[in-house]
């Protein structure tokens, strides 16, 4: 009897790119739901716009590059980029913000470099940073957490604002939007207030900003699940959060009137989203175990530096992109000791 032949190993596990990507998307659900709960329909509108643009752009680029469209889209990476970008965007952003960010992320930052696996920079963060430096005003249109809002937009009203730029009569966008807690601290410290005075306001909760701390907890929960499932390894989140925590602790201990507490930093802004979902993007991150720790710590420290002394209230995107640049060097110097190559 004759048989077909293949190369060993003949057995393969159940691990799959598509499964990984879908796992990460699923893990983002608690944070996403909490973000929707606290910041309204804008979160979901952004999500739909960003994800559909990412998928559309990926399909168009694949077709132009003569690559299999359906199979490649099945890996879920484009949808995940859209999801991560949307989670980073302000809820009152006009429709073209998520669309433009998604286009830039997929077309320039991913497909022009060769598609999945070949992009040196995190596509979602490239898209986000392009928006942040090109459209600073639109990128500050954050919503207040729901209990702090004077008026809350319904889904239809949110769509009208996003797509047509119209608001219910008698409200202006300045009236319904609100600066983020990190932004508030930055501005008010500039006005000479102390942190104790600033954080006495209702925008601040017991850990981070009110509402924000819950969203961060949501992402922490999802991140924990990813760790448990083995989708991500501990080094990058631990390095990121550890680096941020230690930096914050040092300066908080030195001057607690000017520098926010370590816990505040961990539960504000995009800390948890960044640590578990963004910095862990395998394609653009370091790949050696020690390198991942270095990479994570680097991001954590940079996030703190940008938050404390930089020109932007949060710095996850910049920190991730800066460390993306350092990845080849980190990988080179952190190669593991090979079996039989001496030392312990």
């Amino acid at each position: 009897m004759e048989f077909r032949t293949y190369s060993s190993p003949h057995l393969s596990g159940t691990n799959h790119v598509g499964r990984l990507m879908r796992g990460v998307m699923l893990a983002a659900l608690p944070g996403l739901i909490l973000a929707w709960w606290f910041f309204g329909w804008g979160v979901l509108v952004n999500l739909v716009l960003a994800v559909s643009t990412c998928i559309g752009a990926e399909a168009a680029m694949l077709r132009m590059r003569r690559r299999p469209v359906r199979v490649t889209l099945g890996d879920g990476s484009a949808a995940l980029t859209g999801l991560l970008l949307a989670l980073a965007l302000p809820p009152f952003a006009p429709w073209w913000i998520p669309v433009l960010g998604a286009l830039f992320a997929i077309v320039i930052a991913k497909q022009l470099y060769g598609g999945l696996g070949y992009n040196p920079f995190n596509p979602a963060m490239v898209g986000y940073v392009v928006l942040l430096i090109s459209f600073p005003r639109e990128m500050t249109l954050w919503a207040p957490p729901q209990e702090l809002a004077d008026a809350r937009l319904s889904l239809v009203q949110t769509l009208a604002w996003s797509l047509l730029g119209t608001l219910p009569a008698g409200t202006g966008i300045d009236a319904i939007s609100m600066a983020t807690p990190l932004d508030t601290i930055k501005t008010q410290l500039g006005l000479g207030l102390t942190l104790t005075e600033i954080q006495a306001g209702p925008r601040f909760g017991s850990l981070g900003g009110y509402g924000w701390e819950w969203v961060n907890l949501g992402f922490l929960l999802g991140g924990g699940w990813l760790l448990y499932r083995g989708t991500i390894q501990w080094q990058i989140p631990a390095g990121f959060l550890g680096g941020l925590f230690v930096m914050a602790l040092l300066f908080y201990a030195a001057d607690s009137d000017t520098y926010a507490s370590p816990l505040f930093h961990l539960f504000s802004g995009a800390a948890m989203l960044g640590a578990f979902f963004i910095a862990t993007d395998p394609v653009s991150a370091s790949t050696t175990p020690r390198g991942r720790l270095v990479y994570g710590i680097g991001i954590g420290i940079l996030v703190y530096i940008i938050r404390a002394w930089g020109g932007y209230p949060d710095g996850v995107a910049f920190a991730v992109l800066l460390m993306n640049m350092a990845v080849p060097t980190i990988d080179y110097y952190t190669q593991p000791r090979v079996y039989g190559q001496g030392g312990e």
Partner: peptide, 29 residues
């Protein structure tokens, strides 16, 4: 029992291979 190999996709540098390599190599590199 042993399905034929699936078509390969690009390496996403996830590092799973590094985690399991008994020679402690960097298989993806």
């Amino acid at each position: 029992e042993l399905p034929p190999p699936e078509p390969p996709r690009p390496c996403i540098r996830c590092g799973e291979c590094v985690r399991v390599c008994p020679a402690q190599l960097l298989p993806q590199q």
